[in-house]
Structure formats: C-alpha cells, structure tokens
Design a protein around this nucleic acid. Structure first.
Lengths: 348, 348
DNA sequence: CTGAAAGCGCTTACAG
DNA sequence: CTGAAAGCGCTTACAG
C-alpha cells in the first residue's frame, strides 16, 4: 500500500480502472464486493488498487449512495463517569463496525433554550448517518425531542416510566432497581431511614433513582425524607453533606452518583462525623477511583460501557435494516458493598 | 425554519433556485455570502431558503470544494482526566468555529503493531478535514508518525526535548516545570528526598515529568531514587504504594497523576502509614475530585482544556491558512498545596 | 450582478 | 460478466 506517496489529488476509481484496463464501473463492483466479476478481472483491479494506493472516498460514497456509516453522539457532557463511559462503549462498537463517530456537546445543560438545541441537532443531522442522544439531563431530553421525524436516532435515557413503543429505540439501565437495592442494603444494616442526594433530573418528573429509593423506604415502613437536590460533581455533594452533618438523626445517605458521595463524605469529615461510624454513605455508578477512596465507597455498579455498545447496536440495526429492532435494557446493576456503609451508631 | 417537514429527499440548491426564480448558481452565491448579489435578489433567495427549510449538504460541499470543516481526534483513551479534558477543549473550540469533531480511539495503547495504527490513521484521514493526535502514549506517538505527508495534523505531545521546527505544529504543557515545582515543594517541607511513581511514558526516553523531578533533586543535592513504573489508574498507584509502605525511609512521594496518588494513599493507609503524618503524597493534574479527597490532594494543576483549545486553534489556522502558525505551549502549571503534603515525621 | 457548463468521486439503474 | 449514462448536491472557473 502506497502510504508515503500521498498527494493532493487522491487516486480515484477511474485511475484504478485505467491502470487495470477496465471501466470504472467494474472497479466499483470490486470495491463493493459485487458477486458478478470474473476472478481474473478482480485480481487485476485489486492489484491496481494496491499499487496506486487507492482509497475510496467516503464523502463521494455518502453523496452518491445516501448512506454514510457514521454516528454522531449528542451529549451535554463528555467527562463525567457515566457519560464518558457510554461514549467509550459507543466508540468501541462503532469502530468494530467501521463506523465513524462524531460528537457534539449540547450547550447549557440547564437553561438552554430550545432553538439553540434544535440548531445543534440539525447540525449533527447534516453530517449524515445516525444519531445517539444521551438524554440524562434537560438539554439531552430537549435534543432527543428536537430530532426531526425520519432521522435514525437512538436515545440513552433514564428508566422510562413504562417501556416505550417499538418505534422508540431507547436504551437504559435499571436505575430504579439499582437505587432500590442500595437503599435496602442500608436499611438492612439497621438504619431507621436513608436520606438521598439527587443528581439533576432530566425532567420535572421523579427520576428512576429517586423512585427506587422511595419504594424501598415505603416497603420498609421507613420515614420518607425529602430528597436533597445535588449537582453532578463533588461540590454539590459537599454542600449537601454540610447540611446533613448538623443533624444527628441522619445516619445513612444514598447519593445519586459517586462524585456526590465523595463530596458528602468530605463534608462529614470536615464536621467531625465519621464514615461509616456515625454516618453510612453509598454512591451510584462505581467510578474507577471509588474502590480506592478511604473509606472505600459502597456503590451500585452500572454498566455504562455496555449501555453505549447497546445503543450503537440498536442504531446499527436501524440503519442497516437487519436484525431485530427494539428497546433492550442492559445488564443488571450490581451492589458493591465496601467500607463506607455499616450499622448506625449504637446499633446492637 | 421548517424543521418538522423533514423528508427523505432533502431540499437542494436547485429547489431553492426554482422557488426564488433565480439560477442555482445565485443561490450558491447567497449561501456563501458572496458580495456581488443584488440585495433584492438575496432577500428573495433567503426567503426561499427559509420557507423550504433548505440546509446545505456538507458532504456535497466537501466533495465539490475539497474543504470539510471537520477535525478528527485520534487518542488511545477518552476517559482519563487529561485525555477527556483535552477532548472537551477541542470540542468547545471546534463548535465555536462550526467544525464537526470526530473521534477515533487507538487500539492497544501498549503493544499495538504499527500496521494497525497506520490503518486507523488512514481511516481517520479518509473522513477529510484535519487531525489532532494525542501522543501521550506509544500508540499516540506511532499514530502521529504514521500521518501521511501533506495531511493537516496537530500533535498534543509531552514536552519535547527541544522546540520542534516551524513545520511541526505541536502543543504541550510544561510538564517538566510542573514536576520540578512539585518536587521543590516537597523538598522545601524538609524531606530528604522525593520518590516518584511514573505514568507510562510515550517513548523510551525519560519523560518530561521524570526529568523535572530529577532536576529538582539534583539541584537540591538530594539522593536520586529510581522512578517506580506505574500505570494510568489508581490500581497501579496502589501496587507502588504497597511497596513504599514497608520502607520507613520513604517520606515523600510524587505521582505522575492524581489517580496514581489516590492509589498510593490508599495503600499507605492500608499499611497503617498516615498521610501526611508519615508520608507526604503529591499528584499531578488536579482532577475534579482531588480537592474532595481525605486528605485532600496536593497536586499540580494543568490546563488540559486550554491545551485542547490551542490544539484546535492551531489546526484551524493551518486549515484556513490565516493567522499565525507555530507551536505554542500553553498556560503555566500551578502548584496547589492541600492536605496530603507536610513536613516529614520528627521534623523540627 | 447573474447564468450555463464542467466536474468533485462515487453509485444506481439500464443496457448488452 | 462488463460497460456507457445519469445523477447525488454542491463549487469553481468561464462567460456575459
């Protein structure tokens, strides 16, 4: 393959045809693995392709055929554990299917006006190919809604209240179950109730995590405190933790993600309350560093990378109209008990 | 703007021309802001564009003009703090210039064979547009080397031994200075020497971080221990920390990144050594959670997001042949002293 | 200031 | 099994 001889004007299908002594049409057949080409002809064409260092232009392909083997991911964030892992999963799967992956960050996770988001969706759509929208936050939800009819799109969403219809290709993790499990774990340790610091919700509705937490409390007949609104990062957890630290009645706190939990633990420590001696804290996600914190963090592991792979798989099946199409929730969340949770103070 | 009326076959420049009663050539002039168009004509065309919901096809544009307003980022990783932040910076800057951003993850950060990496570079090049290669690791370095002559590319590299020539558009942070500062900080606290846990290097040469550390030791006349080889994540730090924990002579450890530091601290804690009471630990990068750890982490803040923005800016100036072209190192690293560093045990 | 032609590198029918 | 035509939606000269 002639890599070094790269020049401005790239070698085209016609150049190959000339070199091989065939029409460019035949070259097209060869590069598309069309069955009806005489083996000897194919050989000659392949040799010419190799010698000339021909690479088929994906933009010409896209223009002529309308297909594009590309996916663009629309997301409000690329660095938080969940988002980053989903992106990683999508990229992995896309690469395996030789799809190009583009990425567009949605502005103003909170106060974005609809027009701005719609414009970004349009820009992404212009690229051609399919769309995957991470709709864990208001900007993402708006983006998903703004996707024009007829454009191939898969949404990565919070657990929907009820499974969407077959025409709605969505994927999600079972956040409700995860929160339920984590809450039950804390309750089983003897805590009277469990407080909750929430990540920002994608909608005004009660999030799946919040509702799983509430259900566990309800089933146990435990008091149901109001959820505390947090942010995505540790600073929000720190602010919430400062408030909890003054209240001796608080002995167990579930957090909407591990970063929040980190902030809560830090705040409790600053106020002289020990974890888990005085207060138990559990997170959500199992970020890479959570096992190495002191105390190491009890959390619920969610397979975001797998979720990303599923999202791509679903989109792929839509784009290539093969295989089955339908929503498929992914792996079951797994409770990981570590040092940050234990019995409440004075527990028998 | 007609967003809802999206159909399979999109409206083209000719449709607009017909609607406006002009030739499609004139429409082309309008959408390219060409000066010589009569204002009244322009108005009519603009109205037609708006009414029909016309969007110029970027793939047709790319095919016809050869330009593509796209950048693809080649990287071995998308989730570690530094990588993710650079990507974020690139995306920000690209979006501001309405460039599309693609991403390709390089396989096998360590043992990748050259052919595989070269193929990935080719695939990225096929997309058209420019390339930004994050060359912090062997796969990235190989990718940068495999970029064919004549393709617009910017490398994000470790501090080069000497500034590259003007034809090598590279950006970097001053890692050498950063490591030097951090080491001097620990030395100034009274430690006899400072040990170092390294991140994997991009080459066999001594990395900039390692060399800054060594220089500070040398200048202070301190013993120069061998650097310990770590990985990118906390697990590598944990392994290194376990080894250090047994050696009472070790009182200060500098780590190649914050995750490594987290692992080291955890290991020391497991072995009953307190931080910073018995051992001081400093990290590198100032990841978002580092301020909220207990103890909070002394580290050196590096502006990776700014670095990403610079990388894009440089590529942009190469692609559009405007403005100045040349390597520009970015902001100065900033030492952030927190709780994890202090005087050695028994220090006056 | 505006239009008619040729072409970017491919594919999709249509012929043979 | 293989070729000649038309076209994807735009741009870049060339005309006027």
């Amino acid at each position: 393959m002639n890599v070094t001889g790269h020049t401005r004007r790239s070698v085209s299908i016609r150049d190959v045809a000339t070199a091989a002594g065939v029409s460019y049409q035949t070259v097209s057949r060869v590069i598309n693995a069309h069955p009806s080409v005489k083996p000897s002809t194919r050989e000659r064409v392949l040799a010419a392709i190799d010698e000339l260092g021909f690479r088929r232009s994906s933009t010409a392909l896209a223009l002529a055929s309308g297909r594009s083997r590309a996916v663009t991911v629309l997301t409000a964030n690329t660095t938080h554990h969940g988002y980053a892992s989903i992106l990683q999963g999508i990229e992995e799967a896309a690469r395996a299917s030789s799809y190009a992956v583009g990425i567009g960050v949605l502005e103003s996770p909170d106060g974005a006006d609809g027009a701005e988001v719609a414009a970004q969706v349009q820009r992404a759509a212009d690229t051609g190919g399919g769309l995957i929208v991470i709709a864990y936050d208001p900007a993402g939800v708006r983006a998903l809604e703004a996707v024009p009819e007829g454009l191939p799109v898969v949404g990565v969403v919070e657990t929907p209240a009820r499974p969407p219809g077959g025409d709605r290709p969505w994927v999600w993790t079972d956040d409700r179950e995860a929160a339920y499990e984590a809450t039950r774990h804390l309750l089983s340790l003897g805590h009277e109730t469990v407080h909750y610091v929430a990540i920002p919700s994608s909608t005004r509705r009660t999030s799946a995590r919040t509702s799983g937490w509430q259900q566990a409390l309800k089933e146990a007949g435990a008091p149901q405190p109001r959820p505390v609104q947090g942010s995505w990062g540790p600073a929000g957890g720190h602010a919430a933790g400062l408030r909890f630290a003054g209240d001796r009645a608080v002995t167990a706190i579930l957090c909407g993600n591990d970063d929040l939990a980190l902030g809560v633990i830090r705040a409790l420590h600053e106020k002289g309350r020990s974890v888990p001696g005085d207060v138990s804290v559990a997170g959500f996600d199992d970020a890479p560093h959570s096992a190495f914190l002191t105390p190491s963090l009890t959390t619920v592991r969610l397979d975001f990378t797998g979720l990303g792979r599923s999202a791509f798989g679903l989109l792929h099946s839509v784009l290539e109209e093969s295989a089955q199409v339908g929503p498929h929730p992914v792996s079951v969340p797994e409770l990981v008990v570590r040092e940050s949770s234990g019995p409440p103070p004075g527990h028998a």
